[in-house]
Structure formats: C-alpha cells, structure tokens
Amino acid sequence: MAGVVVTLIFAFLWARDVMTPGRATTTGGPEPAGTADAAPIPAHEGGPAMPPADEPVGERMPRNKFLELTTLGLGGVITGLVVGPVLGFAVLPAFTGDELDAVDLGPLDEYPKGEWREATFMSDPAAGEVSRRTAFIRNNGMVDEQPSVTIISNRCVHLGCPVQSGGPRQDEDQETIKTEQAELTVTPIQPANFSCPCHGGAYDTEGNRIAGPPVRALDRYKYSIKGGNLFLLEPYSVGEVKGEGAEAMIKAYGLQGPGEHVDGPSGLLYPIQPQDFG
C-alpha cells in the first residue's frame, strides 16, 4: 500500500521533471570562447571562476530533501499503523464490555412482604467468585396488582466499599436457592440502617445518606418478574428517595460511579459516562 503510494509520487515527479523545459539548469556551462588562448593571469587577479549565485540554484524540492521528508513520512505512517491498534487494544476493551444477563434471584415467594433479605450471588458465573455481589431486597407487596420490590445495591456511593446492614441478622435461617443460572444465598435481616466500614458512610433503609461522606443515596437495581421468579436487571443511581416502601418517590439517574454527584451543580462535573460507549 505505502509502496504503491511512493511509486506514484515518484512517477509523478519524474514525469513533471521530464516535461519541464529548461530543466537541470546549472550555472557555468561551457567556458566562453576566446579565453583559451589568453595569457594566464595570476589567481589574485580577475573575477571569480564561478560567479556567486544571486538566488539558490536548482530545483524547488531537491532530491535529498524529498527523500528526507519521504523517510520521515513513511516512518510516521508505519508508527501510526503499529501504535493505533496497540493503543486501541489496550484501551477499547474496557469500554466495550458485554451486557450482563439478568440474574435469577429465585421465586418471589422467598421474599415475604415487608421483610428484608440480603441476597448474595454471582453476577457473572463464568467469571467466578470475583463477580460476587450483594443486594438488599424488600418485597413491598402489590401496587396496582403489580409486585413492588426494593433492591438496594451494597456498593457504597462514597468510594465503593461494601455497606452492611445495621441490625439483627439470622444467619441460621440462611437459605441457598438454586436457580438455572447459579446458586445464591439469602439471609433474613432487620436493618435499622446501612453503613460502610471503610469511611463511615451511613444510609437509612431507603438508601438515603444520613451520615458520612457519601454524595447521594445508595444505588438500586431494576427488576422484573418472570414466571414467579424475581430477576435482577441493571443498576441505576439515585439522587434521593422520598417516602418509604411502595410509596417511595425515587429520583433516578443513569448509573454513575461511586463518589460522583448525580444532581446539583457538582453533577455537571461528570458529563461523560463509560456506559455511553457500551
């Protein structure tokens, strides 16, 4: 490819060179006639053997200059051809991740009305333990003949540590539910709040910040119900929750990273999200 380009450029230059009249003009030329018989004069007399050129002599683009530029240009092209894919390979995969499948959280009957459960599951069974996630789930009962469920992510919105429920917890009643995808453990809890061990962020049971450094309310998960089973869909960020349970009014935003404001002037600091490329 590059070879073809170089050949074409050279062919064009050669053709232009051939067709330009008066090409290869050099100073000097044959000695003027009549001087051969003249008596020799000393070197320090007479004019210079070669008159000084008034203007640079030669072509507009001398060959060595052209070759220099061509070499540099070709080197640049080759560097680009190598660096482009390498950088793309290093950077792009992080932004083109596959969408995760919905996670089957088992039958809705496992989540009695008005009670909290802590569900631990693998969001991507193929990736293994590293994809283990925890969500706090409360069945709010039926609203307009549709089940209403609150699913709060345990990822602290300060810097991403795992929040824990503050209150009793019945580890002895922990159940393991096997679904088609994987298995998850469900533990009954009675949270008075959620709190983070890393920097002391604290949230009420709707996920609103009550203390510490978090900048918004806890993230929540969308959900769907198919065949009586509760399915976990993608998470979303929450500015603030007014009301409780089924009557809660949620200010929802697209998922943002921990520590990022979603509303107010500081929310303008994060106009581009990685999800925009997915």
Binding site: L159, G160, Q256, G257, P258, G259
Partner: peptide, 20 residues
C-alpha cells in the same frame, strides 16, 4: 476499589479513567 473510585471522582475524565 477505593483507589480506582477516587480516580473516578475526577471531573469529566474521571469516570473514563476509572473504567480504563
């Protein structure tokens, strides 16, 4: 996790840096 999310709070490019 905390270190990367700290990077993520940087204005404008923070979330992309954290993702990278």
């Amino acid at each position: 996790v905390v270190g990367i999310n700290l990077n993520g709070t940087g204005p404008i490019v923070g979330p992309l840096l954290a993702q990278f």
